[in-house]
Amino acid sequence: MTPELVTQEIQSALHEVFDPETGVNLVDLGLIYGVGWEAESGEAEVRMTFTTPACPAGEVMTDGVERRVALVPGVRSVRVEVGFEPRWTPDRITEEGRRALGW
């Protein structure tokens, strides 16, 4: 099981975690800043942000990420890092996300 493969699986899993307000998944909303996996410990790391620091659904999304990523084969633990540098901007939304938002 290569780190690239597991990282890809984690990215794919994050497409199944949705922002409760917009209904768009976190990857297409541009909230995921980075994903990593350490083969030795089996720990997955997800770096993410929210659309605003005062996001009322922030904890729900990080908990959802933890739960979903923990189901990826090879992942023994999950660490979610939330940061606001750089700040999220609408430019981070993917084409797929924009379509879902009505653009």
Partner: peptide, 19 residues
């Protein structure tokens, strides 16, 4: 949604709050 559905996020598909 927060109190009834949020605990299932990541485990199975849940509706959005607006749904």
């Amino acid at each position: 949604w927060m109190h009834r559905f949020s605990g299932l996020v990541g485990l199975r598909p849940v509706p959005a709050a607006s749904d």
